[in-house]
Amino acid sequence: MQSIPGRRIILSLFLVFLLLPIYWLVNMSFKTNTEIVSTMTLWPNHPTLANYTRIFTDESWYSGYIHSLNYVVINTIISIAFALPAAYAFSRYRFLGDKHLFFWLLSNRMAPPAVYALPFFNLYSAIGLFDTPWAVALAHCLFNVPLAVWILEGFVSSVPREIDETAFLDGYSFPKFFVKILVPLIASGIGVAAFFCFMFSWVELLLARTLTSVDAKPISAVMTRTVSAAGMDWGLLAAAGVLTIIPGALVIWFVRNYIARGFALGRV
């Protein structure tokens, strides 16, 4: 891969630009409110863990994280499981209405969540799923399933067709071929697709907030509680923000080689 002159400087500047706001958030999360409002320092003068302690000891706070992780995991599993066979079908076969169906799926990825907020509220209340992780997980399928189909279709297409034919000649049944041969071959693609599903489900707020009230309230909605009559609790808000970054950072850290390899899979 050829690179461009001055690339180190460009890249370093960009990475600093990405990290500065996050650094400031972390910095604030270790300060007390009086310190935040009264002084301007690049690091906390009197570091305190009080903001974090409050989140970890108050159930209404930490349960928010559990709720969020709950629906994100359910959604990722559903999306991948449903999308895999479809991706295979789109990649290998032509069938009635395939192109229209593919674009229709994609068009749901384009639907603004704001459009669906109210109808979803009605729908999930009517079938008794309101305020459960399932409601949010199913709602997020609207945009994650099409995305997963799209990503996986690309990966399946990079597997040579001869492999399918050889497997069928060797007497593999379709399900066995799927699980034993295809899935391991596109494992990194599944990783990438799961990463994207996790990401879009974890970061979405509008639907998650509309479809829950108490029992499944996501952390991002709990965070709005820091606005009180006494003004903003900046330190607490910053600490909660830092904690929402951590699951994402962990996911990236665990899949970092996987993702780099997955993204490079086009190299065949």
Binding site: L15, L18, L19, P21, I22, W24, L25, M28, F198, M199, W202, V203, E204, L205, I219, S220, M223, T224, W234, L237, A238, G241, T244, I245, P247, G248, A249, V251, I252, W253, R256, I259, A260
Partner: peptide, 21 residues
């Protein structure tokens, strides 16, 4: 890759909060 992907995995309202602050 890890640093690049970091902003993508921050919930959107937290992104708003970060820049608001």
């Amino acid at each position: 890759l890890v640093i690049l992907a970091l902003p993508l995995l921050i919930p959107w309202n937290v992104v708003g909060t970060i820049w608001q602050i």
